[in-house]
Design a protein around this nucleic acid. Structure first.
Length: 934
RNA sequence: GCGGGGGUGUCUGAGCCUGGUCAAAGGAGCAGGGCUUAGGACCCUGUGCGCUUAGGCGCUUCGUGGGUUCAAAUCCCUCCCCCCGCACCA
């Protein structure tokens, strides 16, 4: 049967049997969730990593006997789909290309996706289909979208709670902004998807007649070294009025500043009225000239620059460029402010000359600046001013604060990776939004509780704990509403929408009741309703009367929440630790009592495509549904979770996928043919059984800790290798093979559910494990310690190593033998072996050996053997076979060895060696028989 | 800058916590052989360098440079390089 048919067959059977639709029951429960997707494009193979990890885990826990709930919803909150719908409606070529070329969406469908709702609808269905095709054991009854009315009510309630606790606050906040759209811009709103970076500038006021020149700088500490100001003669300057003061800035800067402060633009200022005149340094009181320079960018900062030629290469260069002009007289003045090891008094001069920067237009000026700024920030020390002796970096902050306090400076924000343009073509600016709402994650009391919450949770992988701790420490106010987007209107200002990272922090609790609410009028879902269902406040009867929701239903919902909550395991990719997952902790702590805090968080790495990161620009995105079609569900499932350790990126490549498929084929073939095997008994049988029971023993713990890669190696690749070896060693026992297969199918079921179901069915009535209609709900097997057979393991090791040894000899001798004599070491050597293993030291062992009659009889020989053993004392194993066991093992493999080596094989104890072989035979040691060729 | 993760043989990738069994698993690639009409798939063997007509020995190697130790890919320190995150963005 084709793999597609097998997949559909079992997916249908699971659905018909409602295998994955759990309700409240007597059994112990396990509730796990994965971060729900944002449906703005079809999912690719990378998305499958988290969901498959979650599903494998869900399936394992189900087999362990838990009542497992794995629900799924869709996160549609935010602005990206808005921007996308708009672009489609406008016929934006780029976006058409992406959908057409990468995701193979037909053009007539793309052209219909002109509203956010249509986009969400189309892609969420697409994603759901993909998830169903992947065989994820999701309870789809509980699906919801974050713009559903019922969900909005839930989030509203959450924010009322946050406000009650005092965790919401208002303030001003700088955001990247499009003046035309009147909206904050995210990376998806900009041309080229650039993410705007905002940084603060200090604007320093230099008195000039009745007004001030405003210079923008990142380095206020260099104020002591200012020799002059720069204006660009080719730029328009204007006077602006704000707060009763007059400033001169470039007219571009004035436009930007409008969004951050109240101001009026007054008359133009001609540069000829500035250049050559003096102004006053507010820190030193010194009179300094205003000079011309081309490097000054009117769009950057304020369009006026303070010149610190000792420490800023551009300033030094611009001054040097004045040589030969009427301003030449100013060009030699430098004032040192910062002392820097490895540099003299004027680092900017030194570095410019060393790098041979030609002038202020030279590209190298930028490099020099960057290099010097970094060095000075790091190792620079102030040598002037109030903070003399302090590190430059510290002084910078203090001087900034001082000047702001004294009214000598202003703080503004600018986009530092600009210019960035909105998709509408307008240059983006920074806007200071007043009255912005925040969730105050900076609250120390709150943080303290979150740290406790973190401590009681099981974090996988362990090494991410520090990242959570770090995030908890640095989190401060987080803006939680936006002016536009899909989602939930903010209850304290309904013109605002709750931002997407803020409305997805406790939604897991909503899954427990979402399926009850499908037909409930959202208007009935008052705060009291959620108080009751989520927190158990109030009584069902009163609430029923008030809301009109049946009392029985209310009680069921409360019961369901208490049954499923707390969340037993939360899954996402590792990148969400810094925001979502930490927010999840914060909000659970704020809303829920301690006993409902999340118990475990698991994060995983991404998926690479043939070693490279998937990206639209590289065009190497493999859409999930395409991958399923091409390679089959179970191969895809297995690839994405077995390719790397949990926290590391897994690589997907076709070669590996083919390798997986072909190994599945080998297993399938054995399942198919198993019953044809005879019942011949062979020593390798015990080894194979030992191997499978060892696997069973190990894999339970590994599944629990999500060590999926190790299981994959052992239970899949390892199993196929073992089966191959079994055949090669002439293993032929139907029962043994069958036992192995029954167990291995169980172990593989969480990874490869469709394949495993099919094999499970093919095997028919189980003889060694507990049977069940579906392997998906079969009981997790227990190993039989009695079948873990150390002797069988050692025997097999002996056989394969002996074979290798013989091949080595053949290779070096370059001549194949007709007969091979294998001589096994006498038992007295084994006794010596265990002494050597125990004592490790030659003289100690030798002394002990001399107490043994056999060994004392031939001290030279004893010494010779012991020397050999001690040489490899670290290789010795705690247990070795006896002479008889060794003989039996090799005897059992005689046919195998004879065939593989194409020679007659004779096996005997070393004492029985014929005269001509005796010398060689004596070299036998335990687990390393001596070999003689004829 | 701050925080996190990394640098291993042709490539990929384990090992590092808990030092010795590590010339270093697995896979890919490459080479040889088997199977096959042929190719693919599959199976076997080899794959740091050198020596060795008996399973062996020697040398060099795990970003750099030091250190600790009888012994270091593994522990400590220095430096270099790469990746990711730093928020209002899903």
């Amino acid at each position: 049967m084709e793999s597609r048919e097998i997949e559909e067959k079992w997916q249908k059977r699971w659905a018909d049997a409602k295998t994955f639709e759990p309700d409240v029951s007597e059994s112990r429960k396990f509730f796990l969730t994965a971060a729900f997707p944002y449906p703005n494009s079809p999912q690719h193979i990378g998305h499958a990593r988290t969901y498959t990890t979650t599903d494998v885990y869900a399936r394992f826990m189900r087999m362990k006997g838990y009542n497992v709930l794995f629900p799924m919803g869709f996160h549609v909150t935010g602005t990206p789909v808005l921007a996308m719908a708009k672009r489609i409606a406008e016929g934006d070529k780029e976006i058409y290309e992406i959908f057409k070329n990468i995701y193979n969406i037909p053009e007539h469908i793309i052209s219909q996706l002109t509203t956010p709702e249509k986009l969400v609808d189309y892609f969420s269905k697409e994603i759901e289909l993909g998830m169903r095709e992947m065989g994820f054991s999701i309870d789809w009854r509980r699906k919801f979208y974050t713009y559903d009315k019922i969900f909005n009510k839930f989030i509203e309630w959450q924010f009322l709670k946050l406000n009650e606790k005092g965790y919401l606050k208002q303030g001003s906040h700088p955001v990247p902004w499009c003046p035309k759209d009147n909206n904050a811009v995210g990376s998806h709103d900009t041309q080229g998807d650039v993410d705007p970076n905002i940084d603060e500038y200090v604007l320093i006021k230099f008195k000039f007649g009745n007004y001030y020149l405003l210079t923008a700088t990142f380095r206020p500490e260099t104020i002591y070294g200012v020799t002059n100001l720069w204006v660009n003669p080719g730029v328009n300057y204007v006077r602006i009025e704000s707060n009763g003061e007059s400033y001169v800035v470039s007219s571009d800067a004035a436009e930007k500043l409008k969004h951050q402060m109240k101001l009026e633009v007054k008359e133009q200022i001609r540069t000829v009225d500035l250049i050559g005149k003096n102004c006053t340094n507010p820190m030193t009181g010194e009179e300094i000239p205003i000079l011309p320079a081309d490097f000054v960018d009117p769009k950057n900062g304020s369009g006026v620059v303070m010149s610190v030629p000792a420490h800023a290469p551009y300033d030094f260069l611009a001054l040097r460029d004045l040589k030969g002009t009427s301003f030449e007289s100013y060009s030699d003045r430098l004032i040192q402010v910062i002392e820097l090891a490895g540099y003299g008094k004027y680092p900017a001069k030194e570095i410019s000359e060393k790098m041979r920067v030609a002038n202020q237009q030279d590209g190298k000026a930028e490099q020099a600046t960057e290099q010097l700024y970094r060095a000075e920030a790091h190792g620079g020390k102030m040598i002037v001013g109030k903070y003399k002796g302090e590190k430059a970096l510290i002084a910078k902050e203090k001087i900034k604060q001082d000047m702001l306090g004294e009214g000598k400076a202003l703080l503004i924000y600018d986009i530092i990776n600009g210019p960035i343009y909105c998709r509408c073509g307008t240059l983006c600016v920074v806007k200071r939004v007043e009255g912005q709402w925040f969730i105050n994650y900076g609250d120390e009391g709150w943080k303290e509780q979150v740290r406790e919450c973190l401590k009681q949770a099981n974090i996988i992988p362990k090494k991410t704990i520090v990242e959570y701790e770090y995030t908890i420490d640095w989190l401060k106010e987080k803006a939680c509403v936006r002016a536009s987007g899909l989602g939930t209107p903010f209850p304290f200002d309904r013109t605002q929408i709750i931002e997407s990272l803020s409305d997805s922090t406790i939604y897991m609790a909503f899954y427990t009741i979402s399926h009850y609410l499908k037909d409930v009028d959202a208007e009935k879902l008052s705060p009291e309703f959620f108080d009751f269902v989520m927190l158990g406040k109030g009584d069902a009867k009163g609430l029923s009367a008030k809301t009109g929701i049946e009392e029985r239903l209310l009680n069921s919902m409360r019961e369901e929440l208490l049954y499923w909550y707390p969340l037993d395991s939360r899954h996402s990719a590792g990148d969400l630790v810094h925001n979502h997952l930490t927010f999840l902790l914060f909000n659970h702590v704020a809303i829920f009592p301690r006993e409902l805090w999340p118990k475990q968080i698991v994060t995983n790495g991404f998926v690479l495509m043939e070693g490279k990161k998937m990206s639209k620009s590289m065009g190497n995105i493999l859409p999930l549904r395409e991958a399923i079609k091409k390679y089959g569900t179970d191969v895809v499932r297995f690839s994405v979770v077995s390719g790397a350790d949990l926290s590391q990126d897994a690589d997907f490549n076709p070669t590996m996928a083919e390798g997986i498929a072909s190994r599945m084929g080998s297993i399938a073939m054995l399942v198919e043919r198993c019953s044809e095997f005879p019942a011949d008994v062979n020593s390798v049988d015990r080894w194979l059984l030992s191997a499978i029971h060892k696997k069973v023993k190990l894999s339970g713990e590994r599944y629990k800790n999500l060590e999926l890669r190790d299981i994959a190696q052992d239970a899949f690749y390892g199993a196929v290798n073992e089966l191959k070896w079994y055949m090669r060693r002439d293993g032929k026992n139907r029962k043994v093979l069958r036992e192995y297969l029954e167990y291995i199918i169980l172990l593989l079921a969480p990874f490869m559910p469709h394949f495993s179901e099919e094999m499970w069915e093919k095997l028919g009535k189980k003889e060694f494990v507990k049977d069940s209609d579906f392997v998906s709900i079969a009981e997790w097997p227990r190993h039989d310690e009695m079948k873990i057979d150390k002797v069988a393991d050692l025997s097999e090791e002996l056989i394969s190593e002996t074979r290798e040894d013989i091949e080595n000899i053949v290779r070096i001798r370059k001549a194949a033998p007709r007969s091979i004599y294998i001589y096994c070491a006498s038992d007295w050597k084994r006794k010596l072996y265990s002494m050597a293993y125990k004592e490790k030291k030659f003289d100690v062992v030798m002394k002990e050996a001399m107490r043994d009659d056999r060994m004392r009889a031939d001290p030279d020989e004893t010494q010779r053997v012991l020397q050999q053993l001690i040489k490899n004392v670290n290789y010795l194993s705690p247990l070795v076979l006896t002479l008889r066991q060794e003989m039996e093992a090799l005897e059992g493999a005689k046919k195998f060895l004879s065939r593989e080596l194409n020679a007659d094989v004779y096996i005997m104890p070393e004492e029985k060696a014929q005269e001509a072989h005796a010398k060689k035979a004596r070299q036998a040691t335990p687990m390393k028989p001596s070999i003689f060729f004829e």
